[in-house]
């Protein structure tokens, strides 16, 4: 019994301890001129879908959930956002060459089509981020058109 108590206390101390480890916050008020929405004419329903489902990890501004400051969840989020932005940052869209844009659009289509994005761990909490079959088809069709226009 004593050992259980000790372990519990150690875990608690560790949990409190890691709360002091700082994390990088992905937040910005500035929407750069290169933003995807500013350089493309995006229909409203596509715009809001992209913003809800993609921008948290693929832009410079994350709408953090309430638990975002609790470690180790904050680490987990930080990691995902870093990785997401490295793959694709909608805020920096227009700094890409046409070749790169086409490449990214193709990847967007494939990821949405195969349900790899948005991540399950994300839609689990952000219910409104998941795509219905109709929304999926609409988005894919629109992205295809954009890709062919480049």
């Amino acid at each position: 019994m004593k050992i259980v108590k000790i372990i519990a206390v150690v875990l608690l101390v560790a949990f409190v301890g890691i709360q002091f480890v700082p994390t990088e916050r992905n937040q910005s008020d500035v929407v750069p001129k290169t933003d995807f929405m500013l350089v493309n004419s995006v229909p409203d329903h596509i715009k809001s879908k992209l913003q809800t489902s993609c921008y948290d990890c693929h832009s410079n501004n994350t709408q953090y959930p309430w638990y975002n400051k609790v470690q180790p969840i904050a680490w987990f989020l930080e990691d995902h956002i870093k990785e997401g932005k490295a793959e694709l940052n909608f805020n920096e869209w227009d700094s890409l060459s046409n070749r790169r844009k086409k490449s990214k659009l193709r990847s967007i289509i494939k990821q949405i089509e195969s349900d790899k994005m948005p991540l399950d761990s994300y839609t689990l909490i952000h219910k409104d981020a998941s795509f219905s079959e109709t929304e999926k088809q609409e988005l894919i069709k629109w992205v295809e058109q954009l890709k062919d226009s480049i």
């Binding site: 000790i6 206390v9 150690v10 101390v13 560790a14 301890g17 890691i18 480890v21």
Partner: peptide
């Protein structure tokens, strides 16, 4: 004594996680 041991254990755990990050 018991408290002392526990805080040592906690410090160790913290140290391990820091080294890992580094």
């Amino acid at each position: 004594m018991k408290n002392f041991k526990m805080s040592i254990a906690a410090m160790l755990l913290l140290a391990v996680s820091f080294t890992n990050a580094q």
